[in-house]
Design a protein around this nucleic acid. Structure first.
Lengths: 240, 240
DNA sequence: GTCTATAGTCGGATAGAC
DNA sequence: GTCTATCCGACTATAGAC
């Protein structure tokens, strides 16, 4: 904690003082404030774009003044980047288990059927995660928006979230189809598959409207996953 | 032409004068200017969001002054809406043929295989259109952005572009699977399919990067369509 | 129809006290 | 660490001349 030096080179917060004010529990006092601002920002930037969200909104919602925000994050962009980092971190925390298992299976040479099971597992886990919490929805929106209209956080999200995820998916698909990992068709399938999944995440509101759903509950999720599974099953049968 | 009364109720241009200045060819003089502004705006709003694009940029790129822009479109939002209308219109012009044919086939009761052929036709045509011209790319970006983060033009694009397209797709899929048109699973499949297609349109830049492509040419398009066809083939086999 | 000039607003960032 | 007060730039929109 309290490692405020962002991975940016521009306008970093001032105080580099090692000594921090300490509150009751023995943890640095400011960390609670910082955390609060960050969470508010994650929600705000999830719901609207970098431009649409104002620092005033965030500071108000976090019950701090504007300069406080600057104190912790340097400027608006710094805050935005911090959000991206946080999202990467939290995603990882939720997916490492399944991803690691899938990757391990890949390193041993498993057969097509096993790979398919793992792919379904990964996609299912992702769908569940994204459909699960309100926060995860914000993350998904943030990521989708940033990847579509590249902004300050593009590189972080692309290289540490999107590319690894796509890579893993592509490798699994290649294994399923029994082709080399570099096979372009496998990568295309991976893109199409992940893109499908995102229909109900980043494009949630429009999908809900189209389905006449009010929310994505257990039943709805099951139907979506079923559709995705069908796509995965199709992969093994499709030969260029 | 020259029907400037936008489908909006708010800040419509002033001059309601029936008499228009007439230039050499016998057409109203202002229409050329209006068209020029509109095309510049379509490009600009395709590349960046409503907020990110400034009226200054547009007026400058169109070689007119700011008030001219207001003269024709009332305000920034009016211009944005005019863009949305134009996009709907141009899309329609490019897709009516295939869509009408598919719809006609649907009204007669065709069999599953015929419906599948038509679905492939529709998706293929759409993919071709979107991959084809630079302009179509701008349209796709505009639409995708507006549907994801609903703004002033949401209703226009949703009701006149997205919903009809989804509806047609869902009906074709229902026919392929031999289920009722209201079947939710068919609608989900439709959403997943269209979402996949959009991976290479609204998400073009990121897809290109992932595929190590520099552009989507004939060869690349063929691979994408092949992948989409595989998904369509999967639909008929998938039974809930 | 198109322009120049300007009004009015808002948002990000800073100065400096406590 | 957190605040109040303020600056300054950028943007949309209007007034009014030609």
């Amino acid at each position: 904690m309290t490692k405020r030096p962002l991975a940016v080179s521009v306008p970093v917060p001032r105080k580099t003082s090692k000594v921090r004010a300490v509150a009751h529990g023995g943890y640095p006092k400011g960390d609670e404030t910082r955390e609060r601002i960050l969470n508010v920002a994650l929600k705000a930037f999830g719901e609207a774009s970098f431009l649409a969200v104002t620092t005033r909104q965030i500071s108000e919602a976090a019950s701090v003044s504007l300069p406080t925000l600057q104190y912790y994050f340097g400027n608006k962009e710094g805050l935005y980047l911090a959000c991206a980092e946080a999202i990467v971190e939290r995603y990882r925390r939720h997916t490492t288990a399944v991803a690691a298992e899938a990757a391990k299976t890949l390193s041993e040479d498993c057969d097509s059927a096993t790979a398919r099971v793992h792919l379904k597992g990964v996609i299912g886990a992702l769908a569940g995660l994204l459909a699960g919490s309100k926060e995860a929805e914000h993350w998904a929106q943030f990521v989708a928006r940033e990847l579509r209209d590249p902004g300050p956080a593009f590189e972080i999200l692309y290289s540490r979230l999107w590319r690894p995820g796509l890579e893993l998916t592509a490798r699994l698909i290649a294994r399923i189809r029994g082709v080399d990992e570099s096979d372009p068709a496998a990568r295309i399938q991976a893109l199409l598959l992940i893109s499908s999944l995102l229909a109900f995440q980043s494009g949630r509101s429009i999908s809900l409207r189209a389905m006449h759903w009010s929310a994505i509950g257990r039943e709805e999720l099951a139907m979506i996953v079923s559709g995705l599974d069908a796509q995965i099953d199709a992969i093994s049968r499709h030969q260029t």
